[in-house]
Simulated assay, not measured.
Amino acid sequence: MSLFSELRLAVPWGHIAVKVWGSQKNPPVLCLHGWLDNANSFDRLIPLLPQDFHYVAMDFGGHGLSSHYSPGLPYYHLHFVSEVRRVAAAFKWNRFSFMGHSFVLFSCLAGGTFACIFPEMVDKLILLESTPLVLDCNEPENILTYKQRNIEHMLQVEASQNSLRVSNMEDLLQRLLNKNSHLNKECGELLLQRGTRKMGTGVVLNRDRRLAMPEHSFDFLSKEMLVHFIRRLRANVLMIKATQGYYDVRRANDEKKEAMLFIVDTLRNILKERFQYVEVPGNHYIHMNDHHLVAGLVSSFLQSQPRTALML
């Protein structure tokens, strides 16, 4: 399935850039990238999926080819959820499905939160190496610290007079791979194609410098609130977990699987037959590095008949 078009959707601070595959007459699937990634992260997977769907991969604000937020406006989780609503409004969707990668921050958290806030609009939710919401089991005292750091970091960036760092593509690629051992070279190059732009004799990163550590922008939930949110879900949910992937949003706590296991158990107990959980071999970028492994699972789920949700 070849790329149908590149579009820019107008928003008050500029535009949201999207990549579109397939006819707009087909059922829509909104594809959401992970933290500091961009819409190119779906370039290898979408061509293997059923062609009777309309796939739209968006760049969140401050990423890829989308506009940065206006000066003085921080990046918060609910802002990204509102971006999803704006895209749905631009395409005049009344009901659609999500496919998102990574619980670090956008994809599944924005999609999952949206599906809880607007349950009547979401048909299916595909979680690639992610959970629909973010749970904090043991460190609630850190939440206010993260919010403080988000504001302070924004002010520091605004006060900085440093110019953009111009590099060559080889150096940028090596830095990306050094920071993310789950990416291979080919996939790193694919992300940088959309994540950089030419400047002078080199290239610079497109992303907004105000984007700090992802947990600074999260809306963490307690166990009680997470259960309440999931009870609102009316969508069918497919969660694909890589055996060598991530289990906790804080990499230092990745060996602690309590949050992940609690969320999976809660989804299974509440959604029952509307929830599917599958483990596949691979790492966090399973949809890019080993896209053939997940294409069949995603295709079958998209083409399956929806199960009616209970009204809670």
Rank of each mutant, 00 (worst) to 15 (best):
K272W: 02
L109M: 05
S107Y: 01
Y246R: 02
M121Y: 03
H284D: 08
K257T: 05
V227I: 15
L48G: 02
S23G: 10
E129A: 14
V204K: 10
R274L: 06
L191Q: 13
Q193E: 15
S163Y: 01
E139R: 14
V122S: 04
P47W: 05
A252P: 00
S160G: 03
L183A: 13
G200H: 06
G188Y: 12
L271C: 09
P74W: 09
Q174T: 13
V203E: 09
D52M: 03
S97Q: 10
L133K: 11
K147S: 07
E6R: 15
I46P: 08
D219P: 00
K124F: 09
C31L: 15
M1F: 11
L45T: 07
S2M: 12
H287I: 04
E83R: 11
H287A: 11
S102T: 03
T266H: 01
H101Y: 06
M288V: 05
L9Q: 11
K272T: 04
Q305A: 10
N289F: 01
E279K: 03
S41V: 07
K92A: 14
N283V: 03
R210H: 11
F91I: 14
E279M: 04
I143A: 07
L144Q: 15
G14R: 12
A252M: 00
Q276L: 10
P119S: 07
L127C: 13
E255K: 02
K257Y: 00
F118E: 09
W13R: 13
A309W: 04
K241C: 02
S160K: 02
A88D: 13
K25N: 12
Q303A: 02
H153E: 01
F275V: 09
F218D: 11
Q148T: 05
L312V: 08
L3F: 13
P119E: 10
G296R: 07
E186A: 15
L297R: 04
C31M: 15
M154L: 06
L183E: 14
F103Y: 03
G72Q: 10
R175N: 12
L36I: 14
R8C: 13
R8V: 07
H101L: 07
V56E: 03
S163H: 04
F103R: 03
T145Y: 05
G14C: 14
F301W: 03
I126P: 10
V166D: 05
A259W: 00
I286A: 04
F262A: 00
G34M: 08
L45S: 03
N142V: 00
L172W: 10
L155V: 03
N178A: 15
S299H: 04
N94F: 04
V122W: 10
G195H: 11
P28H: 08
V298M: 03
Y277M: 07
P119I: 09
N178I: 12
W93S: 11
Y247A: 00
Y246W: 02
F60M: 09
V134N: 12
V157K: 02
M121E: 12
Y246I: 01
